[in-house]
Amino acid sequence: MTRKHFMAAAGILAAGLATGCSAIAGDTSSDDPVRCEIVAENRGNMVQLSGLMHADTEMDGSYRFIVKSAGAGGNTNISQGSRFHAGPSGPTTLGMVMLSAGGAYDVTLDVEAGGERFSCEERLGGRI
């Protein structure tokens, strides 16, 4: 198995959150037949974090979507995971959370599909 890491500039993502725009992390323009991404969208005073899987062919797999935060109010550790089916008809959502827009978050989407492992990681907001 191989492990691929897709990273995007945290500054661009944080700037998108600060201005109320949608932000996408990961390499969605890649020619890879299987790829993941992390999407952050402002929803008022909340931020919605989603893990997406893109596949050019039908495939089954499993995933783990992990969000960690730390702040004055305490710590949060969210972990979601399950089996999934993805295909070329569009991205498949693998995990989603709504959190306070002012927080700092480390987000990881780990995917096993088609005999390979893929991982998207992103740090959003302030220092953790």
Rank of each mutant, 00 (worst) to 15 (best):
M1R: 12
R3S: 09
H5K: 14
A8M: 10
A8K: 11
A9M: 12
A9L: 13
G11S: 07
I12R: 09
I12N: 06
A14N: 14
A14M: 07
A15V: 09
G16K: 12
A18R: 12
G20V: 13
G26R: 08
T28S: 11
S29E: 14
S30L: 14
D31S: 15
D32C: 09
C36W: 11
E37P: 05
E37M: 14
I38H: 12
A40S: 15
A40L: 11
N42H: 07
G44E: 03
M46N: 14
Q48W: 11
L49A: 13
E58G: 00
M59L: 15
G61F: 03
G61I: 02
R64K: 01
F65M: 12
I66R: 02
V67G: 05
V67R: 03
A70R: 06
G71C: 08
A72C: 04
T76R: 02
T76H: 02
N77Q: 06
G81F: 10
G81D: 10
F84V: 10
H85M: 03
A86S: 10
A86Y: 06
G87Y: 01
T92L: 03
T92V: 13
L94H: 06
L94F: 02
G95S: 09
G95P: 09
L99C: 13
A104K: 11
Y105A: 13
V107A: 10
L109N: 06
D110N: 06
D110F: 04
E112I: 03
E112V: 00
A113H: 01
G115H: 01
E116C: 00
F118I: 03
F118G: 00
E121A: 04
R123D: 03
R123G: 05
G125M: 10
R127S: 01
R127C: 00
